[in-house]
Design a protein around this nucleic acid. Structure first.
Lengths: 238, 238
DNA sequence: GTTTTATTGTTTCATATTGTTACAATAATA
DNA sequence: TATTATTGTAACAATATGAAACAATAAAAC
């Protein structure tokens, strides 16, 4: 990770007091997961985030940050809330992180200030992501949303709000689309919905509802080798 | 307004580059309106907004700002989006405003910088508001949402997004509650819904739906003097 | 007083949506 | 060829929604 420290954090380049955090959702076929990073030698876990340059749109800052972290372009990305509480402001924590990385907290005093953070969630195809840690972190890993480590500052609140928003948007937006591979079975789709909602759904009602939405294209069958009828594969209409 | 200029804008007190804007909805019985202010001698119209102090929560900054502007405490207030585009950054416009108010744009250079704005909408009881203009503006008035003046910067986008969010939340949150007086008829409530959605609704279906929600308490009838059956008054369940 | 008028509250019926159950189809295996 | 597990579809019930009819009633007109 040493080479990352060069690309660091020239204070004048960034808008002070403003950050973003991202809740990056992925689905491994059974569980809903998010990316969480751990700061080197601190035991501190956090959501991947970043800062916004003076000449750069908020949205593009986040988009670029996500690409760096996951290697993926064209992610489904949605802003859902801006966190501006005072509980966010704990300079000792940031100091700990900087010191653990042997970075002068004097030179980087701006990072010890209070930050307002605009939070986004992203939905990505679990399988084709290359998680890449922060300049300050030494690992980033997938965690199931119901067994996250204790997150620093208000990051657990951010996750909760992201999940809440995801649930509210589930029927209105094509959320399943962005968490699945191109082709998938009806069961795959149902598993995504169940993972997000945290409940079981009726198989037949779910199938009927999805088909009636007229958003799916049916393809060839998938012969899995199981001793039973083979399911159709579907994709979302362009 | 002269006396307002004293309470102005000490640069060090506020978080730089961060602002909020508020879309304040009111309902006059027929139309949905919002508060828009006009900057002195500039012909520029804008949403009421403000800045956030270093030791103050984002939410409380907005709450206090609203109280100053409307005289109302305990407003229904909801954050809905943060605007961070570059089209927001037009220092000449801010300069014009400051100069029109005989305020040095040198001393207040921080106000000419780029701002990211967190937008909130508020729902208030039209009748008991005392609109009070900005330190920089000389009027603030109600405008029907479909006949707003041309707003500066991206403020029209902010209004559009507020309205969109309001419509999406209409059935989930008790929006009508905050736009009506304590007691109201079913027709009053329907008019609020119609004004927000911009469409006509079926009277009987609307009534049934509202009654089935089990959120209303029925009170005495309202004898308006009209030559017809008197409607019941309702209030929202505490 | 009786009739008329406008509006409101409720009911009814048709239609659409959702929940539940049943059943037929079928890919591999025994 | 029969068995097994799973999938697709159909059938029926329960619920919600849209549209229309109908009954109630406050004030004004007569």
């Amino acid at each position: 990770m040493k080479e990352n420290k060069n690309q660091l954090l020239s204070p004048a380049e960034y808008i002070p007091h403003l950050a973003f955090d991202s809740v990056i959702f992925g689905f491994n076929g059974r569980e809903l997961k998010i990316l969480v990073l751990e700061y080197h030698n601190t035991g501190l876990f956090a959501l991947p985030g970043g800062f916004v340059k003076h000449n750069e749109t908020l949205d593009t800052a986040v988009k670029k940050g996500l690409e760096v972290r996951t290697g993926i372009k064209d992610v489904y990305l949605e802003q859902f809330h801006t966190f501006g509480g005072l509980s966010r402001f704990q300079p000792e924590i940031m100091k700990t992180i900087l010191e653990a990385n042997h970075i002068s907290s004097v030179e980087n005093e701006w990072m010890l200030k209070r930050f307002i953070s605009v939070a986004y969630y992203a939905l990505i195809n679990f399988t084709d992501v290359k998680p890449t840690p922060d300049a300050l972190a030494d690992s980033i890993d997938w965690y199931a949303i119901d067994s996250l480590p204790k997150l620093m500052l208000d990051h657990q609140d951010i996750v909760n709000k992201a999940l809440e928003t995801l649930r509210e948007n589930l029927d209105r937006k094509l959320i399943g689309m962005n968490l699945l591979p191109n082709k998938f079975t009806m069961k795959d789709l149902q598993l995504v919905y169940e993972a997000i909602l945290g409940t079981k759904l009726e198989r037949t009602a779910f199938q009927r509802k999805m088909l009636n939405k007229d958003i799916l294209v049916r393809h060839e069958k998938l012969f899995s080798g199981g001793a039973h009828k083979a399911p159709y594969l579907y994709s979302f209409k362009s």
